[in-house]
């Protein structure tokens, strides 16, 4: 977090800024409505908001299947959707 209380990270290569204390999900939502594809290829996005449903899974700094809704956004994170 920088002095302005803003966290800067990247989502699918796009720079995103979110208020400090935001989740990765909040950052992803500023770039795309689709967090992942289901096994049949349908677009999916967060549902439960509390780490239960696993619909918000994204790749964070190369690590796949991270729950965006319970992961705090941090400066410099590289987030990729649609794994």
């Amino acid at each position: 977090m920088n002095a302005a209380g803003v966290v800067r990270l990247s989502v699918d290569g796009e720079p995103v800024a979110v208020p400090a204390g935001s989740s990765v999900a909040a950052a992803v939502a500023r770039v795309t409505t689709r967090f992942r594809r289901s096994v049949r290829g349908e677009p999916r996005a967060p549902v439960c908001g509390m780490g239960v449903c696993f619909e918000c899974r994204v790749r964070i700094d190369g690590v796949p299947h991270q729950r965006a809704c319970i992961t705090p956004a941090r400066d410099g994170m590289q987030v990729n959707t649609d794994d």
Binding site: V18, S23, P46, G49
Partner: peptide, 11 residues
């Protein structure tokens, strides 16, 4: 769910 997301900055 949306309440929790919004509290954590979901737009």
């Amino acid at each position: 769910g949306l309440q929790a997301l919004a509290k954590q900055g979901w737009p």
